[in-house]
Design a protein around this nucleic acid. Structure first.
Length: 519
RNA sequence: GGCACUGUAGCUCAGCGGUAGAGCAGGGGACUCAUAAGCCCUUGGUCGCGUGUUCAAAUCACGCCAGUGCCA
């Protein structure tokens, strides 16, 4: 019952058939940064991630492994839970589509769609790819050695079975109206255009049940059918906030509609066409935004199992460190674009921006306080224009970062913070405390105080991106745990006279192993 | 095949009607508090190609070439 405004953000639920890789880490970290930012900015944040566990693929994998789908799901779901812990993710819930709460929610949604007249029993005939969990038209397929393949390269099989259909075709106009009236519903804008042109070509009714396997949520009243995995999966976003309980005082009432569904560009259509259509049919409000981010290549090449260049999150953390990895992923490319992960780029970011710019700024200032001021926070005196310019830049940081993050522009947000890092480094050189030390003790105290306080503000601002490292910097400034929010930026200034510990470098330089010799 | 988007310094990109910009990389310098970091200066581009509109075009229009995405 706080007065704080709610903010609800979700990652996709990850398919238990996949092994966690850097792509999963990327999506989740991006959401984590936003969740942490919103919390520090005073919001009551609900942050959901989890796993998608039903479907024919999982059933088949389980058979191959000689185990049950549930056992496979249990094991692989844990991998994603571990990943979140490894990445220091601050999710408030972790949903699994095999949980009773979810099955109850999905069946309730189904009933709503049925009551609304949007589901009918028909029969499905066509080509289906188990691997893609998708249907294809005859004209989309290619044939090799008697086997037909989808454009994705996945084999397809002829399926002919009774199936329930969702009247997606009748939602085309409503969806186009949604994209029109809520231009930020799909971001980035290029992706929005793609979805609009897709919907404009006309939608077909969607087969939403299958009878050829049974690893899924049963259709109420017709248990030969299990629901289409995407109908099942998408509902997770409302399961987690207690659907079908939607009355006053429920989590649903408080947190829905979601502020942001973060997705990879491969599942954009499901989230911007099917999902809003389902919600409309169920009479529920629509999420405020779906943001589709891009893919990472590795050293210029597409990540793939066959190339053997799939980047495992654990390897990145072992090599570069958690906060360094979090920083790199969000700093290197404009969010929404594809990006390339290269050792060289990683090293340049870590050494150039973290170690040299930011880390060294902290180290040089704290060292001077240690040497010139007996390790105690100095007493500031009258401010000069130069002081006010620096302090003004720091004071403007929050607004800039907030504005950028409201558009998921992580790289620009970091850029805004680093402009102040640069200002502070220049200020050190211009003020030359090592000279003031011999000429003007009062001025020296003011300069060092300003710098230390700007570092305090910088560290508060970098918390969402690099929680551990930022905390270490704040610890070195002896900032109490309850004075690290954005509300404290300008009000909880450093207290002169506070003794500070001996400084420790916040971001070590990355030195490549000897392997470089092969060049 | 259709519809989009992109093509600007070695690299990544910003600029989107008024005589080319940033970061990184490269070169030089002054300093010394610091993680041999930081600071200052600097080399570098016929803005994919062509035609057109305009007093004036990376910037608008058309065509072409190259790449990418979505759809078929």
């Amino acid at each position: 019952m706080s007065g704080r405004a709610p903010y609800y953000i979700t990652t996709p639920i990850y398919y238990v058939n996949d092994a966690p890789h850097v792509g999963h880490a990327y999506t989740t970290i991006a959401c984590d940064v936003l969740a942490r930012f919103k919390r520090l900015d005073g919001f009551d944040v609900k942050f959901l991630t989890g796993t998608d566990e039903h479907g024919q693929k999982v059933q088949k994998s389980a058979e191959n492994f000689g185990t049950t789908p549930q056992a496979l799901a249990d094991k692989n779901s844990q991998n994603f839970r571990d990943l979140a812990a490894l990445l220091n993710i601050s999710n408030t819930d972790f949903i699994r589509t095999t949980e009773p709460r979810h099955i109850k929610a999905v069946q309730a949604v189904w009933q709503k769609l049925l009551d609304n007249g949007d589901i009918y029993l028909g029969s499905y005939k066509g080509w289906y790819s188990v691997r893609d969990e998708a249907y294809y038209g005859e004209d989309e397929l290619t044939e090799r050695n008697g086997q037909r393949f989808a454009p994705t390269g996945a084999p397809v099989e002829w399926v002919e079975e009774p199936s329930y259909f969702f009247k997606l075709a009748s939602y085309g106009e409503k969806l186009l109206k949604l994209y029109e009236e809520q231009p930020d519903f799909i971001m980035p804008s290029g992706k929005r255009s793609e979805v609009i042109s897709f919907v404009k070509t006309g939608l077909r009714d969607l087969s939403v049940s299958r009878t050829t396997f049974d690893w899924g949520v049963k259709v109420p009243g017709d248990e030969k059918h299990v629901m289409y995995v995407w109908l099942d999966a998408l509902v997770n976003y409302i399961t987690a906030i207690g659907y079908p309980e939607t009355g006053e005082g429920t989590d649903f009432a408080r947190y829905w509609p979601a502020d942001l569904h973060m997705v990879g560009k491969d599942i954009l259509r499901f989230h911007t066409v099917y999902w809003p259509a389902f919600l409309m049919a169920a009479g529920l409000p629509l999420p405020r935004r779906v943001f589709a981010h891009g893919w990472w290549t590795v050293e210029g090449e597409k990540m793939s199992k066959s190339l053997g260049n799939v980047v495992k999150p654990q390897e990145l953390l072992d090599t570069y460190g958690l906060d360094q990895t979090r920083y790199f992923l969000l700093r290197e490319i404009p969010f929404g674009n594809d990006g390339d992960f290269s050792k060289r780029a990683m090293m340049q970011r870590i050494n150039g921006e973290l170690a040299n710019d930011y880390g060294n700024l902290c180290q040089r200032v704290l060292s001077m306080i240690q040497k010139y001021h007996e390790g105690k926070v100095p007493q500031p005196d009258a401010l000069t224009d130069a002081d006010n310019t620096l302090l003004g830049a720091a004071a403007g940081m929050l607004d800039s970062v907030r504005a950028e993050l409201n558009n998921q522009a992580f790289n620009k947000a970091l850029d805004a913070i680093w402009r102040v890092v640069g200002d502070a480094n220049r200020y050190v050189d211009e003020m030359a405390p090592w000279t003031l030390r011999k000429t003007d003790q009062v001025r020296l105290g003011t300069v060092l105080y300003n710098l230390a306080d700007v570092i305090r503000q910088l560290a508060i601002m970098t918390q969402p991106f690099m929680p551990d490292s930022s905390a270490r910097i704040l610890d070195q400034l002896v900032i109490p745990a309850d004075q690290r929010g954005f509300g404290d930026l300008l009000t909880a200034k450093l207290v002169p006279g506070t003794p500070l510990p001996a400084p420790q470098p916040a971001f070590p330089r990355y030195v490549a192993p000897e392997a470089e010799e092969t060049k």
